[in-house]
Write a protein that binds this DNA or RNA. Structure first.
Lengths: 162, 162
DNA sequence: TTGCGTGCAAAGGTTTTGCATGGCA
DNA sequence: TGCCATGCAAAACCTTTGCACGCAA
């Protein structure tokens, strides 16, 4: 195995370490810059972008475009992070309040299979984000919509972050 | 009904006309700028963004964030465009070649229902894009992956654009 | 006439790039 | 020693904003 990942530098180690210790977070370049500066290990913005790109190519981190517009963000977890945090499930993002819901649900995996087998398209769950309105915001908006009222009889796990 | 849409200006009409005549396209602000300039009806970038924002608020056009990063794009079709082009189905975007696939599939609508009823989250199909690898690119990459080889026994309609 | 819409240019934020220097192997 | 990585600053992009003027109603 030759030069997998190029040179070993302090900057690369620090970035990876940060992402590793926050496996559930989707971090933007700006947040990373800020966090590492406070961390006592400041570095240039260019370095952050360049290293994130490399780490992504190595399969150690994933890049997302969660914000409707604006900045991209990254998260630890590739093939080598089997213990798995977010690469196996889907994300739901509320366009109202911005809440990000992690949803690990068999129904959704079924869909991915269907699309792959019947439409020839391999969905990448780690890059796909469902946009819509979350439960809380729908209730705040005063449109409970009984037909879609949750009845919580599903075994699927889901939790929120950010 | 008062001032629905404010003043009637040449610029607004031209933008809307362009989107109306290309209902299947997802157009970026830059493309619009270029097209309208060639069209003989040039206008400032700021006007384009401002009008697109208004048209979106009026429900006449939809805003998407299709590109992994970079620019947003817009498409004709809101509540008033019932004949419907893209607001009722899902989009699959190939991260390899950029192809955008429009997929109108019952399985997917079923999923949306499941997520709504069991997880309390109302998915907005018009804003949700599935990322992954399309059939053509998977074959080019030389990884046919027999388990997910398409067998085309699905009645769902799908077509490509852009 | 009133005030929204327009155009231009400047400013905003995110990401990329050029170039000289620094540091890993 | 040979390159790759870094840092800084400038540039590239997309989008928004300020301001004076134009135009719809």
């Amino acid at each position: 195995m030759q030069r997998k990942g190029g040179y070993q530098t302090r900057q690369k180690a620090v970035i990876l370490a940060y992402l590793e210790t926050h496996p559930e977070r989707h971090v933007t370049a700006a947040e990373l810059l800020h966090a590492l500066t406070e961390n006592g290990t400041p570095m240039g913005v260019a370095t952050i972008y360049r290293q994130l790109e490399k780490l992504e190519q190595e399969g150690l981190v994933r890049r997302y475009s969660l914000d409707d517009r604006g900045s991209a963000c990254w998260q630890y977890g590739g093939e080598e992070a089997k213990a798995g945090t977010c690469h196996s499930h889907f994300h739901l993002k509320c366009t109202e309040c911005g809440t990000l819901i992690h949803l690990d649900c068999d129904h959704l995996h079924e869909i991915a299979h269907h699309v792959a087998s019947d439409h020839g398209f391999c969905i990448d769950p780690s890059r796909t984000v469902f946009y819509g309105i979350c439960e809380a915001c729908r209730k705040n908006a005063g449109s409970p919509d009984p037909e879609t009222e949750p009845h919580h009889d599903c075994c699927c796990r889901h939790h929120k972050t950010e």
